[in-house]
Design a protein around this nucleic acid. Structure first.
Length: 485
RNA sequence: GGCCCGUUGGUCAAGAGGCUAAGACAUCGCCCUCUCACGGCGAAAACAUGGGUUCGAUUCCCGUACGGGUCACCA
């Protein structure tokens, strides 16, 4: 079933959290492979020793599991081209870098960090390495190496000409070689840079489609040059439009931490469903052909996905629409499933039999699970309220005085009631309203406010009274009467 | 600043030389209704700009503006 005609990879660096932009890249990468029944690889890029975060890889793996993005090769599942963690492949990169030196496409550089910093200060933005070591005599290089002088290995970029590549989304991208830096391939600490090791790994792992954010669009010529220098076949490049966020000042920029809760974990902790998140971000930068449907399971996305549907322009992450999607997904949940997901978000869990009756009331009324608690808390405990304010409603012509007049009748009718359920309650109360010459809407408004302490509730007066039970209902009516007195 | 990329309603977006320029979210209105939601119906709302090419440009080309990305021993 699985084949290697299309091999993609998701190659995050373990920074401690799964950014939503990264998730979207992972998703597209997965979809591109799986649409063709290809192979999807997870590779951990942990060559930056200073930024290592403990447990970060677990966050990545966990996110992929929860979202259903199963990888065929990678940490934990193995594969024929492992290991899939770059720090565990450290020794192979130097070999390839030296190979490049031999081929004349790279060179040793002994410049100190201090010298480089000085260069930067001199040139300001747009400066760069002055290629000081590019043409060091062989003997000097040998001597320096022997003397143990720290070195890096840099890519020898052609001084003139242009480098061109085809991007599956953006088309032909052409760059003047003189715009490119002799970037560092191997760092002084013996670790490779991303610029180098991802090329080596992608080749070694048979990656056919490199899927990543468009922030790499301008550095890709350097990578293409690396493939060429090795004599390797260049992969298909698929650069994805950026995901943008709106900052507090209203400006739009690359989605990142500064825009607040945009990590997958933050979103799920706030009660967004993984499947809703996946569905929503799939539509950010991609649009299905020949359909106006917006709801897709992962399988449906896999079938519908196509490179041609990917946009070039950046898109703004919109919480409003995510919230709507999420609400739709919540409404589609079976009562059992909803309950399972809702429980972790409820602080004071009502008795099981009550919970089962409360939950259906909130399910259609929330956008995210974290909204549940605030909506149902009144069932467990009558909130404090200002009676003068609560029993005031212009539409139903409710005033505190009017409410005060209704309460005794309500209590007496209800205390006489033997059959306590929604239908019976509704029948009795509407009949009572008619008898007293009050609009049923008004009476029920007062009843609901008294029994909940709120002007807005999930469910109507009779539904709430039904769940509360006779005793509690009458007690709350009593309380309301006292507060109105 | 250099280089690269982008630009259809507030947001996501369809469109691919000739359309009354889709649809969705959000907004507003109406309906439903024991409040609020849900649901139904409807409204308002867009081709950044100047020049070409063409019988005809949102669509192709060039410039301008605006936005974004990138210029690390980070990925």
């Amino acid at each position: 079933m699985i084949n290697r005609t299309v091999v993609t990879r998701f190659a995050p660096s373990p920074t401690g959290y799964m950014h939503i932009g990264n998730l979207r890249t992972a998703l597209y990468s997965y979809l591109i492979a799986k649409h063709e029944n290809g192979t999807f690889i997870l590779r951990i890029e942990d060559t930056d020793r200073e930024r290592l975060v403990e447990g970060a890889t677990d966050v990545i793996i966990d996110t992929l599991r929860v979202t259903g993005l199963r990888y065929d090769e990678g940490p934990g599942v193995g594969g024929e081209n492992g290991p899939y963690v770059q720090s565990e492949r450290k020794d192979i990169y130097l070999r390839y870098a030296e190979e490049l030196v031999r081929r004349g496409a790279a060179y040793y550089c002994f410049c100190s960090k201090e010298r480089l910093e000085a260069l930067h200060e001199e040139d300001g933005v747009g400066g760069g390495y002055d290629r000081h070591c590019r043409d060091l005599p062989k003997e000097e290089v040998e001597a320096n190496l022997k003397a143990g002088i720290p070195y890096v290995i840099r890519q020898k970029i052609p001084l003139d000409g242009t480098t061109t590549y085809e991007d599956a989304v953006f088309g032909t991208i052409s760059t003047e070689n003189k715009e490119l830096q002799d970037q560092i391939l191997m760092k002084a600490d013996g670790y490779p840079t991303y610029n180098f090791c991802h090329v080596v790994d992608d080749h070694l792992m048979g990656v056919t489609h490199v899927v990543r954010g468009s922030e790499y669009l301008t550095s890709t010529p350097k990578y293409a040059l690396l493939y060429d220098a090795f004599g390797w076949k260049r992969p298909v490049y698929v650069h994805l439009p950026l995901l943008m966020g709106r900052g507090e000042d209203g400006t739009v920029s690359k989605l990142s931490k500064r825009h607040g809760a945009v990590s997958f974990a933050d979103l799920t902790a706030d009660g967004y469903l993984p499947e809703a998140i996946v569905n929503y971000i799939a539509l950010l930068g991609w649009c299905p052909k020949n359909t106006e449907n917006e709801f897709f399971t992962l399988d449906e996305l896999t079938r519908a996905f196509s490179l041609e549907g990917i946009n070039k322009s950046p898109s703004v992450f919109d919480y409003e629409k995510l919230l709507w999607f999420n609400g739709e997904y919540i409404r589609k949940l079976s009562p059992e499933e909803f309950k399972k997901r809702a429980i972790p978000f409820i602080k004071d869990l009502p008795a099981p039999e009550k919970l089962d009756r409360i939950l259906p009331l909130v399910q259609p009324r929330i956008g995210k699970l974290s909204e549940i608690d605030g909506k149902i808390a009144f069932f467990s405990r009558l909130p404090d309220y200002d009676a003068a304010e609560l029993f005031q409603n212009k539409k139903n012509k409710i005033t505190p005085d009017a409410a005060k007049d209704m309460l005794p009748g309500l209590s007496s009718v209800l205390s006489d009631l033997t059959e306590w359920n929604n239908d019976a309650l509704y029948a009795v109360l509407t009949a009572h309203a008619e008898k007293s010459g009050v609009k049923s809407g008004a009476l029920l408004f007062v009843a609901r406010a008294a029994v909940s302490g709120l002007s807005v509730t999930p469910g109507g007066a009779t539904e709430i009274m039904d769940i509360l039970g006779k005793e509690e209902t009458l007690a709350r009516l009593e309380t309301a009467a006292k507060r109105l007195a």
